[in-house]
Computed example of a mutant assay.
Amino acid sequence: MKASMDDLYLFILTVRHGGISAAATAHGLQRSKVSRRLQELEKALHCQLLIRTTRHIELTENGRLLYQHISQPFTDVNHAINLLESQQNSFQGGLRLAVTVSFMSSPMFVEVLDTYARQFPLVRLELLHFQESIDLERENIDLQLLPNMVEIINHDYVQQAFLTSSNGLFASPAYLQQHSEPKTMVELQQHWLLASRHNATLLPEGTRLRLVSEDINMIQQMASLGQGIALLPNILMQESLLQGKLVQVLTDVNYSDIMMTLVYSSRRFLPEKTRAMVTLLHQKFAG
């Protein structure tokens, strides 16, 4: 019969609290159960460990020898457990996010990072460029943000849609002054187009593409400089429209919606600092 690790732990608690009743009370256990388990431990070890009196306990020679050799390892285990619990619940250390180039450069995402950094100044944000789904656990990545058309390699990972937006066509006022504004899709084919690699596939055959890039911010800037008409997510263009840098054209033309997916390895074991970022993303890109 082997000694149980649980019984060894109860033995340590009993010694540290100076008695069976005190140990049972401190840890919400029944005194009779603690007493019975200690008896089982002595039976397994074939020796007496405790001298029981009405008010307290004393260690036998074997009891002292056992306590000296096992108390520190259990202390180290408890310390490790406390560290893990603290790590899960604390807002410090690193938060690693894998993000596509196009989304990373968007002003709205920068606003999310700014809000998070102000709320949790002890968390170090680390951004990594990934266009495809990765093994988050092996790469030690907390969150990944991907377009919905990218297949997630691990179907056990949590996947949440956090941004849905239609696409629109945008040009600068200067560009529209120099070129006649297109009123039909046929007229659009007379203009240079700027688009992401995915959005470029939505355009009709024969479209003249001047720029294809994964960087939405780059496409937006090129459109602002009058280099063509850009196909971009409506939700990310609101600021440029308000500032008059861009004007939407062919507003009645509908393109496929885009959606971003938030991926993380476990909902159950999600650290609080990671949960806070998930919440901010949903709040910023709700709808």
Rank of each mutant, 00 (worst) to 15 (best):
A161G: 12
R37T: 01
S196R: 00
S86V: 01
A276Y: 06
L13D: 05
K33G: 08
Q178L: 10
Q243S: 12
L8Y: 00
Q243H: 13
L66V: 06
E181F: 02
H155M: 06
E187H: 07
D6R: 15
L146F: 08
S133E: 02
E85D: 12
E85F: 08
A117H: 14
I153C: 07
E205G: 11
Q190H: 09
R267H: 11
Q283M: 03
I51R: 14
Q68Y: 09
A26P: 00
W192H: 11
E40F: 05
A195G: 08
V253L: 08
R64W: 09
I70T: 04
F120M: 01
R210S: 08
F130S: 04
T53R: 13
Q177G: 06
S265R: 14
R16E: 15
Q221Y: 04
V123S: 06
M108W: 03
L250K: 05
Q160G: 07
G93H: 08
R55M: 10
E58L: 15
L45H: 06
M277A: 07
D215G: 06
T54M: 08
S21W: 04
P204V: 07
S105A: 13
G244Q: 08
H282R: 15
Q92K: 14
T184V: 06
L231G: 04
Q87K: 15
T251I: 07
R118P: 01
E40R: 09
P204M: 08
M108L: 15
N167G: 04
F130L: 03
V77S: 06
N78I: 04
T14Q: 02
L250C: 05
L65T: 12
S213A: 14
I20W: 02
L95K: 02
S166E: 14
N234A: 13
V34S: 01
R138D: 11
D76C: 03
E126W: 05
I216H: 05
